[in-house]
C-alpha cells in the first residue's frame, strides 16, 4: 500500500461506534469538561435561524403575483395546510396549520443536515431532539382533547370504547397503553432511529472503503464499490429525511384528530 492511503486509513477507525455521535466541543475549542456547544448545537441554532429568516424574508412584502421565494414558502405552507391539516382535521385543521408547518419544516431542516457536506450529521440522531418534539405533540393532543371534551371526560372518551361492559376490563388497559404510553415513545424513537441508522450506514460504507483499501491488495479495488454505495445511500437518506418529517407531522395531526373526534 502507498504511504498516503495507509496514513489515511490509520486515521479512520473501523467499525464506527456510538462514540462517533458524540462530537468534540467547539466552545471551548476541544474542551473535555464542557459539551454545551458542539456541532449538534450549532446545527440546531443554524436551523432555527434559517427557518426564521427564510419565512420573514419571503413574507415581508407579499405580492399578489408571488416572487419565486414567496412561491416556495407558500407552497410549503399550502402543502402542510391542505394535504395534512385540512385533509385530516377538516375545517378546524386551519387552526393547526401554523404549528404543523413549523414542525414539518423544523424536522425537515434538522434531518437534512445528515447529507449536507461538512455538516454530515443530523441533530435528530440524538434522541433528545425527537423526544422533546414528541412531548410537545403528546401534551398538545391531550390538552386539545381535554379542552374539546371538557376535562376528565376526554379520558372517558379515549379509554372506554363502545363495547359491552363485560369486555371493557380487557380493552381499557390496551387503550391506555396504545394511546398514552406507546404514542410519544414511538414518535420519538421512529425519528431518532431513522436518523441514527442513516448516519451509521453512511459511516460504515465511507469508513469501510478506507478499511478495505488498507486491508490487502485484493480488497483495495472494492473500496470503490463501498464509496459508490455511500453515494447511493445518500439518495436513500434524502428519501428517508423527507418521509420522516412528513410522517411525524401526519401522526401529530392524526393524534389531534383522535382527540377532537366525537362519539360516533
Amino acid at each position: 500500500m502507498t504511504g498516503q492511503s495507509t496514513v489515511l486509513a490509520a486515521d479512520v477507525p473501523f467499525p464506527p461506534s456510538v462514540e462517533d455521535f458524540y462530537l468534540p466541543s467547539i466552545v471551548p475549542w476541544g474542551g473535555h469538561d464542557s459539551y454545551w456547544f458542539t456541532k449538534i448545537t450549532a446545527l440546531l441554532w443554524i436551523s432555527v435561524a434559517l427557518i426564521i429568516i427564510f419565512f420573514l424574508v419571503t413574507y415581508r412584502k407579499p405580492k399578489l403575483v408571488p416572487t419565486k421565494k414567496q412561491w416556495i414558502a407558500e407552497s410549503i405552507y399550502g402543502f402542510v395546510r391542505n394535504n395534512i391539516a385540512v385533509d385530516m382535521l377538516g375545517k378546524r385543521g386551519i387552526n393547526f396549520a401554523p404549528y404543523l408547518t413549523t414542525l414539518f419544516v423544523f424536522i425537515l431542516i434538522m434531518n437534512f443536515w445528515a447529507i449536507v457536506p461538512f455538516a454530515q450529521i443530523s441533530p435528530n440522531s440524538h434522541i433528545a431532539f425527537p423526544a422533546v418534539l414528541a412531548v410537545i405533540s403528546y401534551v398538545m393532543f391531550i390538552y386539545i382533547g381535554m379542552k374539546h371534551h371538557g376535562g376528565l371526560k376526554y379520558f372517558k372518551h379515549a379509554l372506554i370504547p363502545p363495547a359491552p361492559w363485560f369486555i371493557l376490563p380487557l380493552l381499557i388497559p390496551i387503550e391506555f397503553f396504545s394511546t398514552f404510553i406507546v404514542r410519544p415513545f414511538s414518535l420519538a424513537v421512529r425519528l431518532f432511529a431513522n436518523m441514527f441508522a442513516g448516519h451509521m450506514l453512511l459511516l460504515v460504507f465511507t469508513l469501510g472503503g478506507f478499511a478495505m483499501l488498507n486491508a490487502n491488495v485484493w480488497f483495495a479495488p472494492f473500496s470503490v464499490v463501498s464509496w459508490a454505495m455511500t453515494i447511493a445511500l445518500t439518495f436513500l437518506e434524502f428519501l428517508v429525511i423527507c418521509l420522516q418529517a412528513y410522517v411525524f407531522t401526519v401522526l401529530t395531526a392524526s393524534y389531534v384528530q383522535g382527540a377532537l373526534a366525537d362519539e360516533h
Binding site: 380487557l170 390496551i174 396504545s178 406507546v182
Partner: peptide, 15 residues
C-alpha cells in the same frame, strides 16, 4: 394503519 398496528402490538404487550 399505524393505529391498527399499535392496537395489535399494545394488546399483545399489555396482556
Amino acid at each position: 394503519g399505524m393505529t391498527a398496528v399499535a392496537y395489535l402490538i399494545a394488546g399483545m404487550l399489555v396482556w
